[in-house]
């Protein structure tokens, strides 16, 4: 069961509720950022949980791993804060924690997934722009977004 988050940019209002919810659930360290698109819209930037994750490839400590659901998870105990993953991320969604000297990343709220709930950002999305669905379903529905590209974006964008 591989489920991924899909963002429909036609619906995003840029209210930043997803960022608030993420920070609220991850001890005040928001793992989700916003990028301004041409000054007129805001877009949540999440980890796309790539098929061939560069962050995993470059990590010298093997702190980043892929679990059975295809979620890319960082193990905090192993991370030495070398920033290799941050530099390698093609989407620029990884960043440094200013005080802990490690690079935290999106874990798809696996604590909530175990309870059978949706990730925090999806559950609180105020306009229904974020959807959490089976990967196969998403590929069927949004084929144009899944086609092409070296890195298969699990967080797909349509506009």
């Amino acid at each position: 069961m591989e489920k991924r988050i899909y963002i429909n940019m036609n619906l995003c209002t840029g209210c930043r509720a997803c960022a608030a919810a993420c920070a609220q659930g991850h001890h005040d360290q928001g793992l989700l950022k916003h990028g301004a698109v041409e000054e007129v819209a805001l877009m949540p930037l999440h980890c796309r949980h790539c098929d061939t994750p560069l962050c995993l490839e470059v990590c010298p400590q093997d702190a980043i791993m892929k679990d059975e659901n295809g979620t890319i998870i960082r193990q905090s105990q192993l991370c030495i804060g070398c920033k290799s993953c941050i530099m390698s991320c093609p989407f620029g969604v990884m960043f440094m924690h200013s005080t802990w000297h490690v690079s935290p990343k999106c874990d798809l709220c696996h604590d909530r997934l175990e309870e059978g709930k949706q990730p925090r950002c999806v559950a609180t999305c105020t306009s229904g722009a974020l959807v959490f669905e089976e990967l196969t379903e998403l590929e069927k529905k949004h084929r144009h977004a899944a086609e092409g590209g070296r890195y298969f974006a699990r967080w797909m964008l349509v506009r």
Partner: peptide
């Protein structure tokens, strides 16, 4: 979030509401 179907707006909260505990 009260994610049940019958809750207002499907139970989503805005950034201000999500910070209620804070």
């Amino acid at each position: 979030w009260d994610g049940s179907e019958d809750s207002k707006y499907g139970g989503s909260l805005c950034a201000r509401g999500a910070a209620m505990v804070e």
